[in-house]
Amino acid sequence: MSDAGLHHSLEVFIGAALTLMVFSFLYRDNPLYKIAEHIFVGVSAAYWMVIGFWTTFWPNVVVKLLPAAQRVTNPDAPLPEQDPAVIVPLILGLLMLCRLWPRLAWISRWPTAFAVGTTVGYSLVRYLRSDFLNQISATIEPGLLATADSGALWSARFDHILIVVGTVCAVAYFTFSRARRGGLAILARIGLVFLMITFGASFGSTVMGRVTLLVGRLRFLLGDWLGLI
């Protein structure tokens, strides 16, 4: 068997063994499952550290501080401009590690504050634009502004109106600043029905995603490993 074939066989065998170790949890918690679980914790922590180092830290910190470092990973690439300003996130990042020492842990609030500030700054306008204004216009435009000569089928128009009604009623359900009486109570009740359908659809899609993964693992065991299918 060639080296590549041996590597592939070993890869499939280890993958199958780990898959069975995890599935053993369906019987009950046991040492094989715990071994697989602990391997996963260690491997995933290291995996994301390595990905972060080579895809973010190296090109955005090391290469920007020392442009010649670009040649280490890509000898043919042109050297980028030096950007000493990246010393700021580098220092903030090192301050974040102060979290490991309880007496200095408070310093890690500074980089955390930068992360919060960045998230706040980017999110405020983006959410307001994409998840508020754009969603409202996407609801209103096709539903209420469609003209008779727009060529839309009656069923499509009905759907659009239903979306408008559903959205307004579901928003009414989220109105907590006044007592739900009279018209608001009726709207909220209808809105709840739309929300339950939404949660049901999300739940169904989630279960389907998990079942797809399960089918994938079974295909791997029966096909790649045992060669039965």
Binding site: G52, T56, F57, P89, L92, G93, P111, A115, T118
Partner: peptide, 9 residues
Amino acid sequence: VWFAILAVF
């Protein structure tokens, strides 16, 4: 990008 660098840390 700085935010991503902090994420690496």
